[in-house]
């Protein structure tokens, strides 16, 4: 009871340069946000989760770097774009969230399931690779056991992997080549 309540915003946590970095990275219009909350009230994810789109915009504007880069709520957005369509100021909140996500990934904050999905593309060239049951099903449908994608062209998979290496994507998502 004697503990002093934590102030909602700590001045020493505000980092003006971080705001500039977000803007340069793709959130060009974040600073015209008027905090009306249309985004939050339109959000199908926020209705049932901790995701508060308006608050993310505010945290970005205040340059609360740690709160953005370590924010798991960023990953609750389904990228449905409803907020982007309805924002009266043209902030493009979905694009801001995608920018924040990329910055979080750069800072090494990627969720494990997402590392796994990225790993599947690196390994197989498909985020959802084929499984035994589907191979069988394809055969009964006369579609060919493997689709005419990277699954049927090993040299094409190599290309995909080379591109990934060249872009450093394997390192970014901590992929271990075996």
């Amino acid at each position: 009871m004697n503990e002093k309540p934590k102030p909602p915003i700590q001045i020493d946590k505000m980092d003006k340069e971080f705001l500039d970095t977000i803007i340069k990275a793709g959130a060009e219009k974040i600073n015209v946000c008027i905090q009306c909350g249309t985004c939050t009230s339109s959000c199908p994810s926020g209705r049932r989760t901790a995701l508060k789109t308006r608050q993310l915009m505010r945290k970005g504007l205040l340059g609360l770097k740690d709160e953005i880069l370590n924010n798991k709520d960023l990953w609750l957005c389904t990228t449905c774009y409803t907020c982007l369509e309805r924002c009266p100021r043209g902030v493009d909140p979905t694009d801001v969230i995608l920018t924040m996500r990329r910055m979080a990934v750069q800072a090494g904050n990627m969720l494990d399931p997402h590392k796994r999905v990225a790993g599947l593309v690196i390994k197989f060239g498909h985020a959802v690779p084929i499984d035994e049951a589907t191979r069988k099903l394809r055969t009964t449908m006369n579609l060919g056991e493997n689709p005419p994608t990277v699954h049927a062209y090993p040299e094409a998979l190599k290309e995909v992997q080379e591109i990934i290496k060249k872009k450093g994507f394997d390192k970014l998502v901590c992929y271990e080549w075996k």
Binding site: T78, T79, L98, R101, R102, V105, M110, H114, V117, A118, V121, G125, H126, A127, V128, T149, V150, A156, L157, V160, K167, F169, L172, V173
Partner: peptide
């Protein structure tokens, strides 16, 4: 290959 998926890959890099 995978397109690659917008919600995730565009969110990573």
């Amino acid at each position: 290959s995978c397109c690659p998926a917008p919600g995730v890959f565009k969110s990573f890099d």
